[in-house]
Simulated assay, not measured.
Amino acid sequence: MPQIPVKIHELTVGQLSARSGAAVSALHFYEAKGLISSRRTSGNQRRYTRDALRRVAFVRAAQRVGIPLATIRDALAGLPEERTPTREDWARLSENWRAELDARIQQLGRLRDHLTDCIGCGCLSLETCVLSNPDDVIGEQISGSRLMGEKKRG
């Protein structure tokens, strides 16, 4: 992995990509979503401060555990500008995200447990299907896959 000399305070998008392991297109996407920022040179080239390395690492770690980009952006927005997320920031944020992740894990477990039943019957009945209609909330209105098409139009 190429080392960045300490005296270099700004990185090109290529240098940031090489150091972070993120594709250039991903870095452009992160910037468009407000996760990282750059300045433009007189030649209209992007330059990132060194703290972008830690921010990219933070974003990628949060993405790996399933945190949505909007949630990551909100977390980063709560940090002072130009400050990199610290170990303490990660600990605080990850503790806040734990309940959300636990709920997703439970939901995925329920989906896994009922997936075979759904594929086995093939009906996709919204009246009784625990995947499409948990707790039969819509069963009073209409049954069958007809409701799926109506929901898209409505």
Rank of each mutant, 00 (worst) to 15 (best):
M1L: 05
V6S: 06
I8D: 09
H9D: 13
L11Q: 09
L11V: 12
Q15C: 04
L16I: 06
L16K: 06
S17D: 05
G21D: 06
A22L: 08
S25R: 14
A26D: 05
A26S: 14
H28I: 12
F29V: 12
F29N: 10
Y30P: 02
A32V: 13
K33H: 09
G34I: 05
L35T: 07
L35N: 01
L35Q: 01
I36T: 11
S37Q: 07
S37D: 10
S38K: 06
S38W: 02
R39P: 00
R39W: 01
T41Y: 05
Q45H: 15
R46T: 08
R46S: 02
R46W: 04
R47F: 05
Y48S: 02
T49C: 04
R50Y: 05
R50W: 03
R50K: 13
R50Q: 09
D51P: 00
A57V: 00
V59L: 02
V59F: 01
R60P: 00
R60V: 07
A61G: 07
A62D: 06
R64K: 13
R64M: 08
V65P: 00
G66N: 08
G66F: 09
G66H: 10
I67W: 02
I72Q: 01
R73M: 00
R73W: 00
D74K: 04
L76P: 01
A77K: 08
E81Q: 15
E82D: 14
E88N: 11
W90T: 15
W90Y: 15
A91L: 12
L93I: 11
W97V: 10
E100V: 10
D102F: 04
R104C: 02
Q107H: 11
L108P: 01
G109V: 14
R110A: 06
R110K: 12
L111E: 08
T116S: 07
D117N: 11
C118G: 08
C118W: 14
C121D: 15
L124C: 05
L124E: 03
L124A: 09
S125P: 03
S125E: 14
L126M: 11
E127G: 15
C129Y: 05
L131K: 13
P134M: 06
P134Q: 07
D135K: 12
D136Y: 08
V137W: 05
V137E: 12
I138S: 09
I138R: 10
I138L: 15
G139L: 03
E140F: 09
M148I: 14
M148E: 03
E150Q: 12
E150L: 13
K151N: 10
R153A: 15
